[in-house]
Amino acid sequence: MSDITFTKLSVGPMDNNAYLLRCTGTGEGLLIDAANDAERLLQLIDSSPGGISTVVTTHRHQDHWMALEEVVAATGAASLAHAADAPQIPVVTGTIADGDTLPLGDCQLTVIHLVGHTPGSIALYHDGHLWTGDALFPGGVGNTWGDKANFESLINDVSTKIFDRYPDETQFHPGHGKDSTLGAERPSLPEWRARGW
């Protein structure tokens, strides 16, 4: 991407990935998942001029927002999440929905609602990159704890809203672990569906 740079930081104790995105034109910043280690996140934010205007929480599970209150208090950033998960997140100043566009300086991120891991799980897309939270990983969709309806919802949303929409070269960046591409994972979709997790 020429118009957005991003930095990935793994924070403990569950090795969550937090992502700092910055518009190269304006310097405006956005943080995806203030998961933990507020001090390290704030050092990352402060190390690149421009601060942040927004924190987006990909879903309501606690390991993705442990540092949210401290980061929002220190930066004055807006805190956004999907309305279906917002009541379980400690500080939310606005909600987002499927198909919304989030401004980041001169750029825009597209919100993709992926139901199943939680009711309000989201991914964000910009220019060949997806930040998928815990909805999509290398090797499968997110955990649905044996709930068949939730799994069907998630595999269907991931299939139609991500794999049917974006090309193989699209890179995705999950809430834990390593990145991958849609092309690397696409051949496994039938296997994921058949195994039910």
Rank of each mutant, 00 (worst) to 15 (best):
G76L: 09
H61E: 13
Q108K: 13
R193A: 13
G105K: 07
G27P: 07
L31S: 02
T118V: 08
S159V: 03
G120E: 08
R60H: 14
P190D: 04
A74H: 00
G50K: 00
S180L: 09
L68Y: 05
G94T: 06
D127W: 03
D98V: 09
S180C: 09
D106M: 08
T57R: 08
C107Y: 02
E39Q: 14
G146V: 09
G139W: 10
L154F: 08
L154E: 01
E39G: 13
T144H: 02
T170K: 00
L182P: 00
G128S: 05
H176T: 12
L130V: 09
N143S: 12
A73N: 08
N36T: 02
H59N: 10
E69N: 08
H173Q: 12
S180H: 05
V115M: 06
T160N: 13
Q62M: 12
L20H: 10
Q108W: 04
I89W: 01
P190Q: 10
F163Y: 13
A83M: 11
L9G: 06
T7A: 11
L42R: 01
Y166F: 15
D3N: 12
E152I: 02
A74I: 07
L124N: 00
T57W: 11
H173K: 03
L20Y: 04
R186S: 00
L114M: 07
Q43G: 11
D33I: 03
I122N: 07
M1A: 15
R193S: 11
G94N: 10
E152W: 00
A84W: 11
L109P: 06
A81G: 12
V71F: 02
Y166N: 00
Y125Q: 13
S159W: 09
A149K: 13
G120R: 04
G99S: 05
I96D: 00
G140L: 09
L21G: 00
D164W: 05
A135G: 11
K178Q: 15
G51L: 06
E39W: 04
A73M: 04
P90V: 00
L109T: 07
V91G: 01
P49W: 09
G120H: 09
G12Y: 03
T26P: 12
P119V: 03
I96M: 10
L30M: 12
L102T: 05
G94S: 12
Q108A: 15
D15F: 10
G139I: 07
V115L: 04
G175I: 00
L80A: 06
N16I: 06
A35N: 06
D46T: 09
N36R: 05
G183M: 03
G128K: 06
R193Q: 15
L42Q: 06
A194W: 11
L124D: 09
Q62F: 12
M14T: 14
